[in-house]
């Protein structure tokens, strides 16, 4: 049997992003559709970050909404109140989300399932804080007077095509970074920690430090996309920015697409988001998440490696034979 470490799917990656980039042209680029795709790509970024933590860090997070919300609020406040340029505040939003993840470090001492619960509890804290710190965040009423994305080299990022192009590029960059980490010795060690922690530590791997890095990186990416989202939609309130769906949807997207693959979460995010918005919400207005929950259960039981995982396994078996 060949190692399941798939070859860098460079060609597949390039093809997928060409399709993604060309999609609006092919479909006539209605503003409505572009808006949906932009949201789907935001979700794709978060799903990628979630899967990176799950696959490489061996940590299931039920609290990525915290990082998403922190990134969004931090960037919106820095740009709106301090007047910093948005191109600076967006990465700063990511950094602050990573900083927020540091407060979770004690939870890394907890074993796997308990860590998952800790991050679940942790996510709630931020929503409550954002609601209560109303002098800063506008409280439950929300925040809406802060700048949108700027124009860079003649490309108006505030326009839908501009935002779309930026997001495609960033998601692609995220995929490349993820693939590179996964193939490095760091990625190997991380995968080893998930299954055999003592055996990995005994050869010199500082497992807590590595996990902390993955958590911070995942939080950074999530915060970055949270910040972009804040500037794209131009409005924030705690119940939206820290909404449970920012934790739930990335999980479903990643599991659906295959969270052990690089492209799975991205493809999953696009499919799941469109399904949720176009199909599920149409069928059931309130409680449409029940369909996503059922999908999640079905995927874990029938295809725990996701749709891409299934394909990759078949391909891998053939290559190994």
């Amino acid at each position: 049997m060949a190692s399941p470490r798939a070859p860098l799917p460079g060609l597949a990656l390039a093809a997928a992003f060409l399709v993604l980039a060309a999609l609006p042209l092919l479909l006539g680029a209605s503003n409505y559709l572009l808006g949906l795709l932009i949201s789907a790509l935001i979700l794709a970024g978060v799903a990628l970050a979630w899967a990176l933590l799950g696959n490489l860090g061996g940590m299931v997070s039920f609290g990525h909404a915290a990082f998403f919300g922190v990134g969004g609020y931090a960037s919106a406040l820095l740009a709106g109140k301090l007047g910093l340029p948005v191109l600076l505040t967006v990465p700063l939003g990511g950094l602050l989300a990573a900083l927020a993840s540091l407060a979770m470090l004690p939870a890394l001492r907890l074993s796997g399932p308990y860590f998952a619960l800790a991050i679940l509890a942790y996510a709630q804290i931020f929503r409550i804080l954002a609601t209560e710190a109303s002098s800063l965040t506008g409280g439950a009423a929300g925040l809406q007077r802060y700048p949108g994305l700027p124009t860079v080299f003649g490309l108006d990022l505030a326009s839908r095509p501009g935002a779309y192009a930026l997001l495609v590029a960033l998601v692609a960059l995220g995929c490349l970074a993820y693939a590179a980490i996964r193939r490095s010795a760091l990625g190997l060690a991380l995968r080893a920690i998930a299954e055999s922690e003592d055996a990995t530590r005994v050869v010199g791997v500082n497992s807590v430090l590595l996990k902390a890095w993955m958590l911070a990186l995942s939080a950074f990416i999530t915060g970055l996309f949270g910040a972009l989202n804040a500037h794209i939609i131009g409005f924030l309130e705690p119940d939206y920015a820290f909404a449970g769906s920012w934790s739930v949807l990335p999980i479903i997207a990643s599991v659906f697409g295959g969270y052990r693959t690089v492209l799975g979460p991205v493809g999953g995010a696009v499919v799941i988001y469109l399904f949720d918005q176009v199909v599920a919400k149409g069928l059931i207005a309130v409680g449409h998440q029940i369909l996503l929950g059922l999908l999640l259960v079905a995927m874990v039981l029938a295809a725990p490696n996701g749709l891409l995982g299934l394909l990759e396994r078949k391909g891998g078996a053939r290559a190994g034979a």
Binding site: G112, I284, I290, G293, L296, P304
Partner: peptide, 22 residues
């Protein structure tokens, strides 16, 4: 088993909550 059972029970939780909501 550890990771997937977490995801599974989380999904069941979503289904049950939304079923009650419906």
């Amino acid at each position: 088993r550890e990771l997937n059972s977490l995801i599974l029970t989380y999904g069941v939780g979503i289904v049950l909550t939304n079923a009650v909501l419906l």
